[in-house]
Design a protein around this nucleic acid. Structure first.
Lengths: 110, 110
DNA sequence: GCAGGATGTCTAGGCGTTCTAGGCATCGAG
DNA sequence: CTCGATGCCTAGAACGCCTAGACATCCTGC
């Protein structure tokens, strides 16, 4: 947590991770960078938030993890979305849309 | 938590409460109904979530509470937004906008 | 040769927020 | 007189994230 926004809301982290992985398998460190890049520096996920989240997500069967070697020859744990993970991503996106819609309604209420 | 959405994201509750009160002073039970009505039944706040939140919000000086009699002659604790509460509402709305924008960027990323 | 920064994974501990699940009281309708 | 709606409140736990580290390797610069 440096410049961008403060804390992101609880519950959005899974969505971000799943979305990042939907563009291709990636290791933890890379997920953080991809999220930062995709959000145009608005969101930055801390390592201490990411790894426990990845563990939780893996337990739920939404990703699988595998040690491998990255393009620079270093070993890293690569995560890939499972089919269930793809479904979950869709669920979370729909959830988010519903919430965003509900909040919008509340805000425009007079 | 009945039909509508599951749990709302942590951090949105304050925004909802402040917004509800921005339309006029209200007691706890009424806040729940107003939020439900403003969101067109999409959001429903539990009493067990609301009262602790109201207490917290009052401690922070965003609302003041006062016992009074409602239109049906029953006593109830009415909450009103303070000036600081109005500022806080603006802060939370801006925060929400930023987050929504960031999430949108992530989601449209290829 | 070595210091420091970037890359990479991970854990312990704690904290704030919300939910579950009650208790309690009054009022009106049936 | 019973039941649902209105009204306020609390205890306890679960959850999800953050802070703040440890640790290892590689590259670059001095």
């Amino acid at each position: 947590m440096t410049e961008p926004k403060a804390d992101l809301l609880q519950g959005t982290l899974d969505l971000l991770i799943l979305k990042a992985l939907s563009l291709g398998a990636l290791h933890g460190y890379g997920i953080i960078q991809r999220i930062r890049q995709m959000s145009e520096q608005m969101l930055s996920v801390e390592q201490g938030s990411l790894y426990p989240a990845l563990y939780r997500i893996e337990q739920r069967g939404w990703v699988t993890a595998e040690w491998d070697i990255n393009e620079t020859g270093r070993r890293a744990k690569f995560y890939s979305l499972t089919r269930a993970g793809r479904r979950q991503l869709a669920v979370e996106e729909e959830s988010w849309d519903m919430l965003a819609l509900a909040i919008a309604k509340v805000r425009q209420a007079t």
